[in-house]
């Protein structure tokens, strides 16, 4: 059920405008922040600990993009605004940002192979983050029209994995901070709220049918 005012007053003109805006520029826009970030790191403009700064920023961007992807369905359902054609870009960019986040950790941060493996199996926050990344791989690989055609209903089911991925991503953040810090819980709450919006609204449907 959409909000009463939105469809006519806001959603229609927004949708009309969006119809003219293709999705492909998102990939180019999305490539800019990591390049800027890396260059800032190389030229010493990322502060005292550039590796951690890059690592955190890429991880945070990844979470933002996952959240953007999770907003698409509620935006259509509750505001009547269709962002569907951008969802693949959100998802794929999220994958590439998290891949970058992981590579920075592997290559620039930990560096030591044996320690990387020990961290993955022994440290819950890394196990959780790694799990989320591994789950993203099949989604990234099947984010193309051919896979959608070939997999049919299975594709839809497979891509529901993003719910688990987003939750694990925010849990990874919650687990890694020291002391009680509010920011990771905000991410987790936003993701939980976006997932809650997807719960079947049986009560309302029943009452509609009754009426």
């Amino acid at each position: 059920m959409s909000l009463p005012l939105l469809p006519g007053v806001i959603a229609d003109p927004v949708n009309r405008t969006l119809r003219k805006v293709p999705a492909w520029p998102l990939y180019i826009l999305g490539a800019i922040p990591p390049v800027v970030l890396f260059w800032a790191g190389v030229t010493g403009r990322l502060g005292v600990d550039p590796v951690k700064d890059m690592e955190h920023q890429m991880g945070e961007w990844g979470l933002w993009l996952l959240i953007a992807g999770l907003c698409v369905t509620p935006m259509r359902r509750y505001a009547g605004i269709s962002l569907l054609k951008y969802r693949r870009a959100f998802g794929l960019l999220a994958f590439f940002y998290i891949l970058g986040h992981l590579l920075i950790w592997l290559v620039l941060d930990v560096q030591i192979l044996s320690q990387i493996w020990a961290d993955i199996v022994k440290r819950p926050y890394i196990t959780v983050g790694m799990g989320a990344f591994v789950l993203m791989i099949p989604l990234a690989v099947t984010s193309n029209n051919a896979s959608i055609r070939r997999l049919g209903k299975t594709w839809r089911r497979l891509h529901k994995l993003v719910y688990a991925i987003a939750l694990l991503g925010s849990l990874h953040f919650v687990l890694l901070v020291k002391g009680f810090q509010i920011e990771p819980y905000i991410y987790m709450a936003v993701i939980l709220a976006l997932l809650a919006l997807r719960l079947p609204r049986t009560g309302k449907r029943r009452s509609l049918r009754a009426a």
Partner: peptide, 11 residues
């Protein structure tokens, strides 16, 4: 418990 102390990043 959440990370190794065997090595350290040199600031």
């Amino acid at each position: 418990p959440r990370w190794s102390q065997a090595t350290e990043r040199v600031i």
